[in-house]
Amino acid sequence: MVEIKFLGYLTDLAGTRKKEVFIESPRPLREILPPSFPEKNLIILIDGKPGDLETLVSPGQSVILMPILSGG
């Protein structure tokens, strides 16, 4: 199982704030995200470390996807 958390407008694209995806072996992050997910202006943290859409995600890891924001 991989836990994926979405922040900001990415929740609209994912249709949820959090979901769990079942995988048996490591897979590129892109393959477990909803189709047509944005390629740019994303912050991707896998177990707290920066990654990208090609980073391999293993069962038991947690992923956070955040937009790049500007702040007040």
Binding site: P50, S70, G71
Partner: peptide, 8 residues
């Protein structure tokens, strides 16, 4: 506001 880039 470099913090978002920094975290990424």
């Amino acid at each position: 506001w470099v913090i978002a880039w920094e975290v990424s």
